[in-house]
């Protein structure tokens, strides 16, 4: 890593064997393939790509000592057609475990980040989210629904554009 570079991590989230829930991984894999060729466009960013099936505290721990994170994951809102791509900030997601009914075994990412910061961990100030409207996330399969599969290039484009924004700000 060069001095003054922004440590930037792209995280594909989801379960790669649970149908559309695996779309975050697929996007991350695509970004990984293109990264070497595109890295020169982002001289101020030190970019790495990871894939996880994590949430809450465990996900927060994967962000320690990183400056900027782009999360890519499936989402189910029911408001937009399957395969729609959203760009969100973390605060646009509801913080489900304000209490913890919703979170039988963990806490929300928002709470986990707050807890991590309280305890002195260096955690990213910038967390952007690229989310893809998913259809089938309750049935085991390594395949995506066709509209979700077709959304991969658009989701990758959203990631590259987020990276360009970060690069411009440096």
């Amino acid at each position: 890593m060069m001095k003054n570079q922004l440590r930037t991590r792209i995280i594909g989230l989801g379960n790669p064997i649970l149908g559309d829930d695996g779309v975050g991984w697929k996007v991350a894999e695509q970004i990984e393939k293109e990264l070497e060729a595109k890295q020169p466009l982002y001289p101020h960013l030190c970019i790495d790509v990871q894939k996880f099936s994590l949430g809450g505290l465990s996900l927060m721990e994967q962000m320690i000592d990183i400056d900027a994170v782009i999360l890519v994951d499936a989402i189910q809102t029911g408001h937009q057609p399957i395969g729609s791509v959203y760009r969100l900030n973390l605060d646009e997601l509801p913080n489900y475990s304000a209490g913890h009914t919703s979170s039988p075994h963990d806490t929300s990412l928002q709470n986990a980040l707050q807890a991590g910061k309280l305890m002195g961990a260096h955690l990213p100030d910038i967390i952007r989210i690229v989310a893809i409207e998913a259809e089938k996330v309750y049935e085991f399969s390594e395949h995506l629904s066709p509209p979700v599969e077709q959304a991969i290039p658009k989701a990758c484009q959203a990631v590259w554009e987020y990276l360009s924004e970060l690069e411009e700000k440096r």
Binding site: L93, Y96, P104, D106, V137
Partner: peptide
Amino acid sequence: LNMVEMAFRAYDPCFGCATHTLPGKMPLEV
């Protein structure tokens, strides 16, 4: 309501397998 929840929380029930999709956690509705 929380005291009702405490009844099942002791068992540490895990729906973790279904919680990866954003927003990241599965809400429990009463």
